[in-house]
């Protein structure tokens, strides 16, 4: 699969927007949809954190987050997108579905450049996974 293009244009739509030059944040509120390359993020709230030189480094999505990348659909209550690392860390009942298979835990890190996710359990939530046996010709699994 082509690597995720973290420098591709980012498009965000929402009901409202609030920008705060002191805390250097731009917050999109209400029916937020963000698209970059082959990634789409749906959320109730999305906060863009920028730094000196006005570069976007981190994006935090909250409130019924749903992230779609190809066949992969990740859900949770919070997702932190780190542009530098090209990762998304999901918490708040996180789950990654791929077709009928899924993995869930306390924290999931999705590697956007790879077809890989890291699932971590914790006190409250053990790792759970469900993989359907493949027929011989396409042995794909959503997570290792």
């Amino acid at each position: 699969a082509d690597a995720f293009n973290r420098d591709a244009p980012l498009e965000i739509t929402s009901d409202r927007l609030e920008a705060d030059d002191v805390s250097k944040t731009v917050v999109f509120i209400g029916h937020v949809v963000g698209r970059q390359d082959d990634l789409t993020i749906h959320a109730g709230r999305l906060t863009v954190h920028y730094r000196q030189g006005r570069q976007i480094r981190t994006i935090v999505a909250e409130e019924d987050v749903r992230i779609i990348q190809g066949e992969r659909v990740a859900t949770g209550q919070k997702a932190v997108f780190d542009r530098q690392e090209a990762t998304i860390v999901l918490t708040g009942d996180p789950r990654v579905n791929q077709g009928k298979d899924f993995v869930a835990g306390e924290r999931i890190t999705v590697f956007l450049d790879e077809k890989r996710s890291l699932v971590e359990g914790g006190e409250k939530e053990r790792v759970r996974a469900l993989f359907h046996p493949r027929s011989k010709d396409n042995g794909q699994n959503p997570a290792r």
């Binding site: 498009e11 965000i12 009901d15 927007l17 999109f28 030189g53």
Partner: peptide, 23 residues
């Protein structure tokens, strides 16, 4: 004075990101 701005509805935005400074 608070250096805060709001857009009240119908927000659409497009950001050309480009490589991060460290890169």
């Amino acid at each position: 004075d608070q250096r805060r701005l709001r857009l009240l509805s119908d927000v659409w935005s497009r950001w050309q990101l480009g490589p991060l400074a460290e890169e």
